Simulated scan of single mutants.
Amino acid sequence: MTGMANHTIPTGWTLISLRPQGQQAALRHAAAALGGRTVALSPWRLQRLHDTAAAQQLQRALTSDRVVFTSPAAVAAAASLIPLAAAQRSPWLTVGEGTARALLAHGVADVHAPQRMDSEGLLAMPVLGDVRGMQIGLVTAPGGRGLIAAELQAAGAQITRADVYRRLPLRLSRRMLARLARSPSPWLLAISSGEALQRFWQQLPAHWQQRLQANAIALVASERLGAQAQALGLTRIVRSEGPTHLQLIAAAHTALTGPAAT
């Protein structure tokens, strides 16, 4: 963040975060470093699964030829069930560097992460080049990342799924919408999850959808998310290099200092 010149950034701007409840701190601090405030409109909170069935599913998944962890939350939930470093028997893969760092922090040494941090980037990795007849473990939550399982199955793999946490839907906070209405523009909507965007958008009153279509700049973590944002009528879109808080804030810097901010 210190490498970003901020003399051309508007003196007031607002980041709209769709991160899960309680996971806003890194994004909020990064936005504050560029003079922005954050309004959190979380569509869900995350709950780890601690039951015997979840532990058994995880143990089966971790014996697969390849294992994919879809998020840092999946790593944290799995680590609360069994010691991960001792369980590794094959290459473990992640969708992005944040998830890879989480595995490394738990002592897992053999971790593969794509340069392009999305489902498409993961599927293009050489370690998944020919998966016919392979067993692929997927450590995740119900819903989300459906492209990974579908594409791997289409390529001939068998999927062993371990749902180690779940997303509990939240009602959109009217209080936070009122705070957003009072917050300075430009408004930057950080989008790193298509499912989160969909649930957020479905709960918005029509006049709020129109207000965001007219005023918000969407910061999207992938081309697929950009297309989804466009389909919702969000026309000002800036592509982030990935879903991490630093990558999203770098995209915010671009949005605030470039033509999209005008």
Rank of each mutant, 00 (worst) to 15 (best):
A5T: 13
T8F: 07
I9D: 01
P10S: 08
P10F: 11
L15R: 06
L15N: 10
S17W: 12
L18Q: 07
R19M: 08
Q23R: 14
L27M: 13
R28K: 15
H29Y: 11
A30E: 02
A33C: 03
L34S: 08
W44P: 03
W44S: 08
R45P: 05
L46S: 09
Q47Y: 05
L49P: 01
A54K: 03
A54C: 06
A55R: 12
A55P: 07
Q57N: 14
L58G: 01
S64Q: 05
V67H: 13
T70N: 04
A73K: 04
A78E: 02
S80Y: 10
L81Y: 09
A85T: 03
A85D: 07
A86V: 03
Q88Y: 11
Q88E: 09
R89T: 09
R89K: 15
R89D: 03
W92A: 02
L93D: 03
T94L: 00
T94W: 04
G96D: 00
G96R: 00
E97W: 11
L103N: 10
L103K: 09
L103G: 10
G107I: 12
A109K: 10
P114S: 05
R116F: 01
R116H: 05
L122N: 05
A124H: 15
P126V: 06
L128H: 07
V131Q: 10
R132F: 12
G133E: 09
I136E: 10
L138C: 02
T140W: 07
P142I: 05
G146A: 08
L147Q: 12
I148T: 08
I148A: 10
I148Q: 03
A157V: 06
T160C: 09
D163H: 04
R167D: 02
P169I: 06
R171E: 15
R174T: 15
R179H: 14
P186E: 09
W187K: 13
A190K: 04
A190W: 02
G194R: 05
E195M: 01
L197S: 04
Q198W: 08
Q198K: 14
R199S: 15
Q202S: 15
Q202F: 09
L204W: 12
P205G: 12
H207N: 12
L212M: 14
Q213A: 06
Q213N: 10
N215C: 13
I217Q: 03
E223D: 13
R224I: 08
L225G: 00
G226I: 01
A227L: 14
A231Y: 11
A231I: 15
L232C: 08
T235P: 01
P243S: 01
H245L: 04
L246I: 03
A250C: 06
A255R: 00
A255C: 05
T257Y: 12
G258T: 09
G258R: 04
A260K: 10
A260E: 12
